[in-house]
């Protein structure tokens, strides 16, 4: 059995800041990480592999990104993936959701056409759009189950516990299928020294558009139906009244007065 995990490398979002003077990003010290939700998806794949030794599961991770995305893929190999492919080419630059999912689809079709299950993070923490996995599923022609917290393989079907607004649902689909993962019970972990050393022996291939036979007119900016017209700094907010709270009795009183004056206290 083959599980493909689609991953993305993202900047560690909390550490990104914008210069209010120039409106550009302050780049110093920003590190890139494996998107946490992609890591949960990988963890779920590893759990399935361990739970089903009879299936002889192979875990293959695929990412599209600049050359430094190799680091995120190395992390995947450390955390239990067996093989990693990076689709990296200037021809992919400027790809929006559609063009990114096209590249990922072509990657899957050309590299691992015999896949049974695709796992992906529910969203990336830099864009938070949650759209690429679903578009990839549609392009591959497989069903999708989004917001999974637990995945089980039952015969030829995948059974997923997923988050919905009012609680949870258990949904099943025949494989091949694509499942996106929320956090669930997975936690981000640090790989052991043995895993780190082992990962260096696993295959990690960097491939260009030509290597996987993608027509360059299907990817990148030219193939992207959405285009960024303008980038600008978010409008600066002007704050209200800020008081010194060193006298806690007085500041609690002022807070109460503010709430009463604005009709927020219900009797």
């Amino acid at each position: 059995m083959k599980i493909v995990v689609l991953v993305k490398q993202v900047p560690e979002a909390d550490k990104v800041a914008v210069d209010p003077e120039t409106g550009t990003l302050i780049r110093e010290g920003i590190t890139s990480i494996l998107n946490p939700y992609c890591e949960y998806a990988l963890d779920e794949a590893v759990k399935l592999k361990n739970a089903h030794p009879e299936e002889n599961i192979e875990i293959v991770t695929i990412s599209m990104g600049p050359p430094q995305t190799k680091l995120a893929l190395l992390r995947c190999l450390e955390l239990g993936a067996d093989k990693a492919y990076l689709l990296s080419d200037r021809k992919f630059a400027g790809s929006d959701v559609w063009a990114t999912s096209t590249a990922l689809k072509e990657g899957v079709v050309n590299l691992e056409p015999e896949f049974d299950l695709i796992l992906a993070g529910k969203q990336a923490i830099d864009g938070d759009t949650a759209q690429v996995p679903a578009e990839t599923a549609e392009q591959l022609g497989v069903p999708q189950i989004t917001y999974g917290v637990k995945v089980q393989i039952v015969g030829k079907k995948v059974e997923v516990k997923r988050e919905i607004e009012t609680g949870y649902q258990i949904v099943s689909a025949r494989m091949p299928a694509l499942v996106t993962m929320s956090k669930g019970s997975n936690i981000r972990r640090i790989p052991s020294m043995k895993e780190v050393l082992n990962a260096r022996k696993k295959p990690l291939e960097v491939l260009t558009a030509d290597d996987i036979g993608i027509d360059e007119n299907k990817v990148g900016l030219k193939a992207s139906p959405t285009q960024v017209a303008r980038i600008f700094a978010p409008p600066e907010k002007v704050g209200g009244e800020i008081i010194d709270g060193s006298d806690h009795i007085d500041s609690a009183k002022k807070l109460l007065e503010f709430l009463i004056a604005n009709n927020y206290i219900k009797e």
Partner: peptide, 23 residues
């Protein structure tokens, strides 16, 4: 952009080869 909206809209966008701007 509810959970179902995020599940549905990209599926339609990919089917019709359309752009989709989320959130």
């Amino acid at each position: 952009a509810t959970p179902n909206g995020r599940d549905l809209a990209p599926r339609i966008a990919a089917r019709l080869a359309l752009g989709l701007t989320a959130d």
